[in-house]
Design a protein around this nucleic acid. Structure first.
Lengths: 331, 331
DNA sequence: CTGAAAGCGCTAACAG
DNA sequence: CTGTTAGCGCTTTCAG
């Protein structure tokens, strides 16, 4: 293994000079920098991560804790994760993967052992058991999602309330009067995951504000559940002409179920979804939708952490505004 | 931060004794072990990962490189990843997440900097550019997937050839004579990803061996592509009565397309899928299928690495035998 | 602008 | 069965 003293000897400088060339923490004459860099690449030098972490008390690793549970949409989690990795690499950091299963102890473990410099936590619940730890830890952290009491934390998410509002407002603007929200599975509401509730709130507020009628309906993520809900919906609300869907796996089964029940989309029924852009584009018909900005969430989480690690202040709350793209599923 | 000397002082022993209590690398009297453990938990001691890595030249971290590309099925990747993390934790290791995007350089980087002790690489191509590095590195590695030339490497995967065979053999046993394989998207074959080819080979061999007729048909992962393929298939092979599908996202669109073309499943057409168990169970009708053993692949990859790290010999190739579960989609 | 040297916290000989 | 001690490879004062 080639080490910093090897590089120093080869370049005819001291180890500290090599270190400073790499870190840029003090000015180095152009000539010695050149020589050092040449030696580094000639010898194929790569600093030992552990040694560096020990000496500098910075591991250059971020922890990302991902959810495993039912009711979450896997592709979105995956996109966020890869966006986090990509963004972290741009800032010369790596990403350690933790699962929700590890819980509070897992976070404490990687923090206390100095394995990581900062934490990103996904799938935040209203009263998340991890919050006390995140507040007391002196490692910076970012939550993707908003708990009930975000004071003292840094949170980022799509503004789901505004998204729910925007979808309902869109239906109102098209002249619909009787609408419905097909929401996340009941267990997602039950465990008080914020985004599901917030969509429902935004939807309900906009329905009221625009003088429409209609309510949120939690729905399991299975085609059968979608079909059953369609039956119930049309029985209880026969004049229904507009639907907002916020439940990725059943977006298409739902459209088919309506079709099977004699409601064509968009001729008889307007559908607006909250789902990943790609899914909306590839649906039949392509869905008017509010996109879930997975890449942006991942990237900006990392950027927030980098600012915090750099000692810069960051906004405690970042709500990404919903962007509604009109496609072919509503009119 | 509480360190090993603090624990040692508190327990009235030397730092090395604390270290040995933790590592178990030499025998400690029950009494001092008790005392040390008590001090550890009382003080909340957690060894500094960097210091430990530096002193022991073991980071206790595994790298997992996941694919990002089109044509791979995200839920399976995610399941493998979480299985790897879970298994790694059982062996007191953590997992560093790398993306395919980082390529060979990424692997070299984490290896050379001693960030990780071992590597797991997914989505292996027939002639994968990462193979030379993996062969020359002195870090243990495991490939999930088989390249054309696996000599000198440790590989594990579902036996996709046997899976293709088993599906075709099942159709043969049911008396079908004219069959087809609906395979992965063309780009997956084009980049010589082994599993797609192997399914096709196994399928073709079994078709021939059982005196049936039928061929593999690559197919894009979109419902339109599935519909188009169904049209072509029925036009060119009107006596078709059995289909093997190996393309997760279009399994259900394909069944619907056949139905729309007047072929009910399973009455007019037998369908056998190669897909995750969960997907097969929830399809309509539930699909007879060969499961993709994501959890087992992740877990056993880790176990192989642990054996290698422990200096034990491991089999160079592990092919998990296909298990066909009969459900309602064939008869 | 550069060097010398003191640790960072832990492990693993070596010594008893 | 336990203690002493010499590093592991790097960063960062302190000195010049």
């Amino acid at each position: 293994m080639v080490k910093i003293t090897d590089v120093a000897r080869h370049a005819g400088v001291s180890p500290s000079t090599v270190s400073y060339v790499l870190s840029g923490k003090r000015s180095i004459s152009a000539r010695t920098r050149e020589r050092v860099l040449a030696s580094i690449s000639e010898l194929g030098y790569r600093p030992h991560a552990g040694a560096r972490a020990l000496a500098s008390s910075r591991s250059n690793v971020l922890a990302l804790m991902i959810p495993l549970r039912s009711g979450i949409h896997v592709p979105v989690v995956m996109r966020i994760a890869t966006a986090v990795v990509t963004a972290a690499r741009r800032h010369d950091h790596d990403v350690l993967l933790l699962t929700q299963e590890e819980g509070v102890d897992g976070l404490r473990r990687v923090a206390d052992s100095a394995l990581v410099d900062a934490l990103i936590v996904m799938d935040v619940q209203m009263r998340d058991p991890r919050l006390p730890l995140l507040r007391e830890l002196d490692l910076p952290s970012v939550l993707i999602g908003f708990p009930a009491e975000p004071a003292g934390l840094t949170c980022i998410d799509l503004d789901f309330r505004a998204a729910g509002e925007a979808c309902a407002a869109r239906l109102a603007a098209l002249g619909h009067r009787s609408v419905a929200l097909v929401g996340s599975p009941p267990e997602v509401y039950a465990r008080q995951t914020g985004y599901a509730q917030r969509v429902a709130e935004g939807f309900t507020a906009a329905v009221r504000a625009h003088g429409m009628t209609g309510e949120p309906h939690p729905c399991e993520s299975s085609p059968e559940a979608a079909r059953a809900l369609v039956d119930r919906l049309l029985a209880g609300q026969p004049d229904l002409t507009g639907v907002v869907v916020h439940n990725e796996p059943i977006v298409e089964p739902l459209v088919r179920a309506f079709r099977a029940a004699g409601r064509r989309v968009p001729e008889d029924l307007a559908v607006v979804a909250i789902c990943p852009e790609e899914q909306a584009e590839h649906a039949d018909p392509p869905l008017s939708s509010v996109a879930i900005p997975a890449e942006e969430l991942g990237r900006r989480s990392v950027e927030l952490l980098m600012s915090k690690l750099g000692g810069e202040p960051v906004p405690p709350a970042t709500l990404l505004p919903p962007r509604l793209t009109v496609r072919a599923s509503d009119r």
